[in-house]
Design a protein around this nucleic acid. Structure first.
Lengths: 214, 214, 214, 214
DNA sequence: TATGAATGAGTGTTCATTCAT
DNA sequence: GATGAATGAACACTCATTCAT
């Protein structure tokens, strides 16, 4: 059996997190055993406990690594000056690929988080990063005039994140990828192509027909 | 110990499903034990097995009951002829209440479903019901002129469902209710307030054919 | 569901015993459930408890009925004046048929009996009946000159019973029916065809070469 | 709690098999619990599962060890050139002792085997070993002239095995040890003392071909 | 550091038996 | 008598965690 790593503790941790990610993604938090993870690494169960004090800690550490991939996709999709709908399509496809490699892992995380304050805090931090990145992108878009000048970009960023997350749930529920892509693009066009930039409340025609939400 | 039910087998099942719903919501599928559910009902573990052959079956049966609540909320929110954004706000608040009483249950379901074909099938049926109901509502909205005439209402319905689902995930991730409501309304305004016909390449026959939902 | 029997308690018992016999034979004592037996009869579980106070009692009662079939086979095989080897072959074939219809039941009974004094007593009574019947038959055989005059017929009877029982065990162990029949006949010929009738100790040549067993 | 074994995995298995043998013999397969076996060893239940994947596997492994004891008894009883009836008496007494230490275990095995193909296969292998050893012994007996020259020794071997097995059943049924020994010896005398060649239609080539046991 | 044997608490499921109807 | 819903004790098996080596 190869050792986890002779010298670099950090790399050992990182290898374990990789293995954990795969195993948790394949089996879900509860069905995955410490032994599964150890075997995937070719290491003894006990070795993992030298780096992580418990299964829960390991899971939490793994969740902390999640934003990395997301941010990479975000930057590579929206980073250049392309047409935003095209960027959104790229984003959709890359996220789809990521999500397909971890089927159900995000729900596993969410369901644990809904009962585990530590996890919740981690997710909150992750989300704040996402929100930040996306809001910046949208602000940049306003400068470049492909995002309506008077849009409220922070809630909009949240809508976009929510929309993606929600489409992931629908994919589990049997929505085809094509249907999901269609829904994603329809919604994005509504947002980006609105010719009036009239989403925010103080625009006269919206206040006429829209109930104030308090 | 009281009997599960005085007389009617159906009511017994239904009571168990209620208890299961609560316990699964509180603890999640794996952490919830059959004993938890039995005790919540004031009944012996064995009694549950008179009505459901396994924990898994009980869970699946519980998932099948979900559309009921959703449809009730949908009809009661969008049923009358009120302003659609106001209806959407009502919908949001009612869904929020439902979801708050079952924190994390939907993710539990999704994470199980991502590995359980039976559950997946049930979720698909559920989703088809949701899509149907919402598509009909949007079609009606087109007649009443508060939904753009040439909108592609089926993907739109999916966007709305996804958006709600996604907001639920963000609430777990620490988004405040206010932020979520804001994101919801911003997105809806973009959709509903959009001047007619701007969402897609306006090919008339496609919108007609999509309205046929079967 | 038909009632166990409306009027004759004895018949009810007897029907239950029949069903029990079949179910115990099919599944073994431990794997058979009271519900299996009840369902085989088309009766409720509770009904059985009106006639037998426990599963164990039911099993014991069933064991008590066993000699009936054995005696019938014994009489019908050895009853007439036929050639004893031919009779033995008939006996073998009939017993084989009986035993095939109850595969493993006798071992089930024996293994329970080895730990259950009540069952043991029942088996002892059954065995005494068998021994009696067979000894009488052998005595008759001596009169009719096809059993050696100076044979010790009671141990011989036991040998025959043991031989049959033992062949049953070998059939479970994969001996073919043909091999078993061969073994049975070889042994019987040795016993019945011994030209000297010299099995008992006081016969000179046997005492010479045979160790006394005390 | 002491460890199952200080160093050698094989010894651990062997100790568990020993404990299992005792517990299964005392309680029978179904009444014996894994906990019983573990406690008998002074070990936790889980430890057993490190060596055997299931109760059934443990039982089967135990059954596989049976021929060892049998062969030892057979060789030590018949190994020397003593008078065969005396050898047979020794064999009887040693087998009796073995069987008394495991009351009912063989029936437990047989009743399980009658419904369990894996066990059946094991029993078949065991039986083939017994048959082989005994046939060789009888062939040797023919050379030494204490077994009739033209006896068909393979069926004869089976008869002897069956006879012993059958006597074990009668011991459970209340036959006294003395009666059993008497029956055993009477039968053996019939076989061994029989003047040469009287057991079967004396076709010489058949006895030769049967001696080839492979 | 790393191992992996051992632990022991935990859980889904079964079923003989009871008893209100 | 007969039912069948309910009980509750039991048991096989799992797995996160520990620790002697």
């Amino acid at each position: 059996m190869p050792k986890v790593v002779p010298e670099y503790k950090e790399e050992a941790r990182s290898r374990i997190l990789d293995a954990a990610n795969k195993v948790f993604a394949e089996k879900g938090y509860h069905e995955a055993t410490m032994d599964d993870i150890a075997k995937r690494l070719g290491v003894s169960k006990g070795a993992i406990y030298l780096y992580f004090p418990s299964k829960e800690d390991l899971f939490e550490a793994m969740v902390k690594t999640a934003p990395q991939a997301f941010k990479e996709i975000l930057y590579s999709s929206f980073g250049d000056e392309a047409d935003p709908v095209q960027s959104a399509t790229q984003f959709f496809d890359k996220m789809l690929k990521l999500s397909a490699s971890n089927p159900g892992l995000s729900f596993e995380i969410l369901s644990e988080a809904s009962r585990n304050p530590t996890l919740k805090r981690i997710l909150k931090q992750n989300h704040e990063e996402y929100e930040e990145v996306l809001t910046s992108f949208l602000a940049e878009g306003q400068k470049r005039r492909f995002v309506g000048d008077n849009l409220d970009i922070r809630p909009l960023a949240n809508s976009l994140i929510a929309l993606w997350n929600g489409l992931e749930t629908l994919l589990v529920s049997g929505l085809t990828v094509e249907e999901a892509r269609r829904a994603w693009l329809e919604a994005l066009k509504a947002i980006f192509m609105n010719p009036h930039g009239s989403h925010r409340s103080p625009s006269p025609q919206s206040s006429r027909s829209v109930a104030r939400t308090g």
